[in-house]
Design a protein around this nucleic acid. Structure first.
Lengths: 121, 121
DNA sequence: CCTCCAGTACGAGATTAGTCGAACTACTCC
DNA sequence: GGAGTAGTTCGACTAATCTCGTACTGGAGG
């Protein structure tokens, strides 16, 4: 394939910021993913992202949680390190999206369960 | 009670010992079930039961784990209280089975993931 | 009766996870 | 440069979980 130059000004769509470190698809572990999803706040995060999947990635302020920022960092990091979310740095903000393709390939049906989840009364 | 036979695994369903306390199907919570399944030993328990689903319920000695009995009690109880297993007392031993119908009704596809799970190398 | 057996209950120690405040970094815009 | 903003990092505290030894219970069979 064509040798890609270090900085190619003629490649408009391929300029996504790099993703933060995350496990590769084949390294995803069911027990780790389930542990990450076994928290109501994190289930809420993933479900909200799934229901808005057509829109762009969302920064963590978008969710409107009334929690200290350090708590949110903790949970987003847990989801990313488990392989549930991919995060990219867009200028100031770090936007997240669900790794739908990877998760559906490795654990088909799992995201459907999350999508239909409802928080406890 | 009929005759002097030992506890009979072939007993008709009407004579099953009562199940230990467990959450009703409609009370099953996804986050609780996922937490119960996020442990490798418990995943092994459930998977082994699923792969032997045609056989009768299994007592916890059947699994052949090299762990103290009190640890096993802990994990079986966690699975039962989350609603993953049903346990019945057959004479001396307490036999477990997966609540396949309930779980498939509430969380379709989840047990398939467990069935295909493989422990880490 | 008394012993064996499957499993529970209790409780301690170690580890991990969640929660949060406070200080900090990195980017943007004026 | 300075202010404001989005989020991180650190450290502390608390709560939950895992692991396991020991003691116990409750049948089954002699």
């Amino acid at each position: 394939m064509r040798s890609s130059s270090v900085t190619d000004p003629d490649a408009p769509p391929a300029e996504l910021p790099p993703a933060l470190p995350e496990p590769a698809r084949e390294d995803l572990r069911l027990e780790t993913v389930l542990a990450a999803l076994s928290d109501p706040l994190r289930l809420t995060i993933v479900r909200k992202l799934l229901l808005e999947r057509e829109a762009y990635d969302h920064p963590c302020g978008w969710f409107g949680f009334d929690r200290p920022k350090s708590s949110l960092t903790h949970h987003f990091k847990a989801l990313r390190e488990a392989g549930v979310l991919r995060q990219r740095q867009y200028g100031l903000e770090r936007r997240s999206r669900v790794r739908t393709e990877d998760l559906n390939a490795r654990f088909p049906g799992l995201l459907d369960l999350v999508e239909e989840w409802q928080p406890a009364s």
